[in-house]
Simulated scan of single mutants.
Amino acid sequence: MNTSKFFLVLACTLVLSKPYFVQGRGYTVYVINDLGPNEKLNVHCKSKDDDLGPHTLGFGEEFYWVFDLNVFGTTLFRCNMDWGNKQGSFEIFNARKEQYKCGNTFDGHCYRKVRKDGVYYNKHRDGDYWKKYSW
């Protein structure tokens, strides 16, 4: 096999098998209703490849999903949310911006608390959340 064919086969193999830095990089994203007692949160999250369906969360309840980054490391999830008379569409996970902000190298956890004034982020369940979006 000549050199150019070898490199073509090698390149195709790497792309189809996912590179090491992408494969096995699992994430779990949690969306938590922190609106207050008796407040229901409607959440519908999607990526280019996955529609996670609609979910209604009571106060303190969470919706979560587990996924690996796509081959290109560009995984993006958006969630449409509403409660009361508020509604919004929020970028809940963007691999290009957040893949190293959600825990350690091999099992990232991303926490999103939805509050009356916006959506808050943290990489730990407990602790100080910071506001990412306003309604």
Rank of each mutant, 00 (worst) to 15 (best):
M1Q: 14
M1E: 14
N2C: 15
T3N: 15
T3Y: 13
S4Y: 13
K5N: 14
F6L: 15
L8R: 10
V9W: 15
A11M: 05
T13L: 12
L14Q: 06
V15Q: 09
V15D: 09
L16D: 12
S17P: 11
P19Q: 14
Y20G: 11
Y20S: 07
Y20T: 10
F21N: 10
F21P: 09
F21G: 11
V22T: 09
Q23R: 13
G24S: 05
R25E: 10
R25K: 10
G26C: 08
G26E: 08
G26L: 07
G26D: 07
G26R: 06
T28P: 07
V29Q: 01
Y30V: 03
Y30F: 05
V31P: 01
V31I: 09
G36M: 01
G36T: 00
P37M: 02
P37L: 03
P37T: 03
P37A: 02
K40G: 00
K40W: 01
K40M: 06
K40S: 03
K40F: 03
L41C: 01
N42S: 05
V43R: 02
H44A: 05
S47G: 13
S47F: 09
K48F: 12
D51V: 07
D51R: 11
D51H: 10
D51I: 09
L52Q: 08
L52C: 11
L52S: 08
H55A: 12
H55K: 12
T56Q: 10
F59R: 15
E61T: 07
E62I: 08
F63H: 08
F63G: 04
F63D: 06
W65A: 04
F67E: 03
D68G: 07
D68K: 06
L69P: 06
L69A: 06
L69Y: 10
L69W: 07
L69H: 08
V71A: 14
F72D: 13
G73W: 14
T74S: 12
T75A: 11
T75N: 09
L76N: 12
L76G: 12
F77L: 08
R78G: 10
N80D: 14
N80Q: 15
G84D: 09
G84E: 04
G84C: 08
N85P: 06
K86M: 10
K86P: 05
K86H: 12
Q87T: 09
S89L: 03
S89I: 01
F90W: 03
E91P: 06
I92H: 04
F93T: 01
F93Q: 00
N94M: 10
Y100H: 15
K101E: 15
G103Y: 04
G103R: 01
G103E: 02
N104P: 02
F106Y: 11
F106E: 09
F106K: 06
F106L: 06
D107A: 13
D107G: 13
D107K: 11
G108A: 02
G108M: 05
H109Y: 03
H109Q: 06
H109T: 01
Y111N: 01
K113D: 00
K113R: 04
V114M: 00
R115K: 04
G118I: 02
V119A: 07
Y120F: 06
Y120L: 02
Y121P: 03
Y121A: 05
N122V: 01
N122Q: 02
N122I: 00
N122P: 01
H124N: 11
G127M: 12
G127N: 10
D128M: 13
W130M: 14
K131H: 11
K132Q: 11
K132H: 06
S134F: 02
